[in-house]
């Protein structure tokens, strides 16, 4: 089903541009063409179809589902709903306050906030089609596990005392129901709206990610990775995670980079740890969360994620070699 993109890339590289097989430029161009076409076609179709069925959940609905759940069910629900609820990271703060106001524990709320950027249905579909379902299953399972564990620890250490005081005073109003147009026309309009919104938000990350992936693929020799990033080097995982911290990309944008790294023989644990570090932690997100979290909890959050991703890297490398 995806061969068409390979053929298109081969045709562009070797026929239209008449590049020679095996040259660095040809490899990079081939990678770039195949991934750009494949990822954007997948991205637009998945978002459109999901929009058509209105399966996209809004944070307001999720809050309703999670109110009054027991802790255990709350965590499981939080990471699953976190995976399928798209929200712009600029909504993290009102979402955090809204969840707490609904009586949802801080740990469960944080589990939702950790999982949401890491795992989402679009990234899962693209990851599956590019890297295979085994790697995708591992990525999803570890991403959700990190979310649950982070939430549990935040509750265990009573981190709610490190939430800014004003947050507890905010009272949430009841939004009047918006009119929903459920006709076919209404659904199509809504789905196109979703496509424009989501693709508009992430296209640049995806292009940059594919560009980096293509450059790695074409120009960086395999020996370099074999020397520095193999599983024999115990520092490879922590270095990968630390390098990922200041970088930020959307989960979809990092996939082509991961694809190129895997192809160069970098072990799966190291690659997944790097992906998670890039996607889940970024300076802007922290500046935003500072509005609701006091410094001790923010530091705990950063340190926990760093350690968790390093642990994920070592664990997967040990399991899959």
């Amino acid at each position: 089903m995806f061969e068409v993109f390979t053929r298109l890339a081969d045709w562009t590289t070797y026929d239209v541009l008449a590049l020679d097989h095996g040259t660095k430029l040809a490899d990079a161009v081939n990678f770039f063409t195949e991934d750009t076409t494949k990822i954007f076609v997948l991205l637009v179709s998945i978002v459109f179809v999901m929009g058509l069925f209105r399966t996209m959940l809004s944070p307001e609905k999720v809050r309703g589902y999670m109110e009054g759940r027991s802790h255990g069910a709350g965590y499981v629900l939080a990471v699953i709903l976190g995976a399928v609820t798209p929200f712009c990271s600029c909504s993290s703060v009102p979402l955090f306050i809204g969840f707490l106001e609904g009586g949802i524990p801080v740990g469960v709320t944080m589990a939702f906030l950790i999982t949401s950027p890491l795992v989402n249905e679009v990234a899962v579909a693209i990851l599956g089609s590019i890297m295979g379902w085994k790697m995708t299953a591992i990525y999803v399972a570890t991403g959700m596990a990190v979310g649950v564990l982070g939430g549990l620890l935040i509750d265990r250490f009573h981190m709610e005392r490190h939430v800014e005081d004003y947050v507890w005073k905010i009272r949430m109003g009841v939004a009047a129901g918006q009119d929903i147009d459920n006709s076919l026309r209404g659904r199509v309009d809504y789905a196109w709206g979703e496509v424009r919104e989501i693709v508009g938000r992430i296209w640049l990350y995806v292009i940059v990610g594919i560009g980096i992936g293509a450059a790695l693929h074409g120009y960086v020799p395999q020996e370099l990775f074999a020397r520095y990033a193999s599983a024999d080097n115990p520092f490879a995982v922590p270095v990968a995670v630390l390098m990922g911290l200041p970088l930020y990309s959307n989960a979809t944008g990092i996939i082509p980079v991961a694809e190129a790294l895997i192809a160069k023989g970098v072990p799966i644990g190291t690659v997944i740890a790097f992906m998670m570090s890039v996607v889940a932690i970024s300076p802007p997100e922290f500046i935003m969360l500072r509005k609701v979290l006091k410094p001790p909890m923010l530091v705990f959050f950063a340190v926990f994620l760093t350690i968790a991703f390093i642990a994920v890297g070592y664990l997967l490398n040990a399991l899959f070699l």
């Binding site: 944070p59 009102p94 306050i97 809204g98 004003y166 005073k169 009272r171 009047a176």
Partner: peptide, 13 residues
């Protein structure tokens, strides 16, 4: 203002 935004029952901006 966050209190005002949430006062309207809106979480996703």
């Amino acid at each position: 203002d966050m209190a005002a935004i949430l006062g309207y029952g809106v979480m996703s901006t």
